[in-house]
Amino acid sequence: MSGEVAKAAPNELQHGPRADLGRGDGPFTPRQLARIDEALTLSSRETGLVFSVYVGELKPPTRAHAEALFEQLTDNAVLIAVSPGQRVLHIVTGPVSAKRLPNRACALAALAMRASFANGDLTGGIVTGLRMLADSAGSQ
């Protein structure tokens, strides 16, 4: 396992390993970060889509903010935006990824994620959502 999650601040999307993450400042422990990293990497490699996970506040209207964040990505990207404070999650697909992931598949993943989030399991919900989306999209 690579062990680090590439992290980007909103509006300045970066990629690449950042080893200084997960030492107590962020919301996730190093083990939780490793789980998210594994799920992100595996689902992206398996499907050929670019999955990314945003965790933080979304300005109302939250859907519009999530879509604005998505517009910084590429056509084959899938954005999972989670706002734990507002108890809202959005899955956004683009022109290419929407063909692989119909809205019904996204809704199913969102349903499973909601169940985990309502139990307070943020990491589990994100990992479950990524796996379900990757399974729905299938291998390329």
């Binding site: 970066q14 990629h15 990293d37 992100l40 945003y54 933080g56």
Partner: peptide
């Protein structure tokens, strides 16, 4: 703080 995770 908001964070955005992308794959390697």
């Amino acid at each position: 703080a908001a964070s955005w995770y992308v794959p390697h």
